[in-house]
Design a binder for these strands. Structure first.
Lengths: 273, 273
DNA sequence: CCAATAGTGTCTGTGAGACAGTATAAG
DNA sequence: CTTATACTGTCTCACAGACACTATTGG
């Protein structure tokens, strides 16, 4: 037939397979600080996610994750994700990790679109708040009532998005769980599933990686770091246990944080290994 | 512009974005038993992977993972993976899990192809050995010499495939590790990376899921199960510790395995929760 | 002094790792 | 009796969970 790879490629007809469009969607997460009225209290921390308001069909006026179509001839999906992040946040040095590829047949009413979702983490302080009115940070609250329903509440101060997702056991030929959206009126596409999967990924990785520090400023107190752990894991931790766990990941500096209405705390820094 | 989603879709031109082809590749893993010459000894277990010999360009005469092009108008990537599995092994009830999406610009010399890789697990006993001569099971040996180089050796009894991959730390904007193929002369595309990523996935999941039982027959001895654990984790386990760990995952049956040249062992069964 | 957080010392119970020992089949 | 595996009892050491205690600031 053909005698060499060169010859094969010369006559290869790449149109023989039907093609499709791909997008990269980004779940950009960070931690927000909410000042408390009591001057003594530390600011409360919450996980937050960046959403974009759609200004055109499909899903007009609903919120969605920032994303964009892949340019197949020039960029990888990761390149594409970075390009979108740059456009949306003006930052280019952000932690980025591939999450999952979503490919339901009807996820986009326009046509078949396969989307690879990425999780991105960022320190909120690095962001220059260029307040585009179609982009907004939503604080995340997760309720895992019972065993198989997860409720997620997203709140940007003006609008509240309620999501309810069922975690069902699937047949053994696939992943352990299937996620079925039960309630979701304001989040476009299948992005509710991406939010849930991304939060779970970060929660799992917290224990065996150093990803937290991508959401932290250079200098931080152990109290702040503990709050971030607590908000990601969604449970209170005991001080001594927490300090044992992160002891070898951080190093104490000579700086102190004062003026908080209580004992000052030492500032720590991430110690790379 | 448009007054409703219906109207929008009616005039939507889906050709405005450049399109591309996608494939689903499957890393089908199972455990093989190798009879020992000493009649007393139990058969040795090894992880093994199903490879297909390419009979056309590109990568003619090299081995690759079974895979196929996605038909975008009718199937999901998982459907596509199942279709390929059915064709290659004639089985349809197989554990299947999405692994990672590979999208390097030059991974296929023909054109831009993005591939979503799946891991599939199967009990070798369920396979009817229809010995197609272009399909073969390769036993896997992994060496993790030092800290950042992984050597994988694949052996089907006639041919040996040696792969060497470097695990390098990447910049913090992405995943912790970057995998760089150092040596690989017989495995097509970027499939060496898929093999490594899949083995690591299974190894990690062994501890917090019940996936092993997808590779086990209905009845098995604890010795056999332990051997499978050992071969996946690539290290010896202590009997009492192992039995404590899996105690609540299995249930003893009345059946026994005899005739092995040593004390008979009870047959166990997976206990679903 | 009070309120709130920072930071440390120490007890205890659980559980993995380790080793030793008993049991039982085939040849 | 030997060999190889099956299976169990128990000790120890590390470590997470828990609690209590001291320290230090602003108001």
């Amino acid at each position: 037939m053909y005698n060499s790879e060169e010859e094969f490629l010369k006559y290869y007809d790449s149109s023989q397979f039907e093609k499709l469009s791909m997008t990269a969607d980004i779940l950009l997460l960070s931690v927000s600080s909410i000042e408390q009225s009591n001057y003594r209290k530390n600011s409360k921390k919450m996980m937050s996610v960046l959403l974009v308001k759609r200004d055109d069909y499909p899903y007009k006026d609903k919120w969605c994750l920032p994303g964009g179509f892949l340019n197949p001839s020039s960029e990888t999906l990761e390149d594409c994700a970075k390009r979108v992040l740059k456009k949306e946040t003006n930052l280019s040095d952000i932690y980025l990790e591939q999450l999952y590829t979503y490919d339901g047949l009807d996820r986009d009413p326009r046509m078949r679109v396969v989307s690879t979702a990425f999780v991105a983490l960022v320190d909120r302080n690095k962001l220059t708040e260029k307040t585009l009115d179609n982009v907004s940070w939503f604080d995340i609250t997760m309720y895992e009532e019972g065993s198989d329903v997860v409720d997620i509440c997203l709140d940007n101060g003006q609008e509240i998005i309620n999501i309810s997702i069922s975690k069902k056991l699937r047949d053994k030929t696939t992943d352990r769980y299937q996620f079925v959206p039960l309630k979701n009126e304001k989040l476009a596409f299948d992005h509710a599933l991406v939010v849930l999967a991304g939060l779970e990924r970060i929660r799992n990785k917290l224990n065996y990686t150093d990803i937290v520090f991508n959401m932290m400023p250079e200098y931080f107190t152990l109290g702040e770091l503990q709050q971030v752990y607590e908000v990601i894991l969604n449970k209170k931790l005991l001080d001594p246990a927490f300090r044992r766990i992160i002891a070898d990941k951080v190093e104490k500096t000579k700086k102190m944080r004062t003026g908080e209405g209580h004992r000052p705390s030492a500032l720590f820094r991430y110690r790379k290994k």
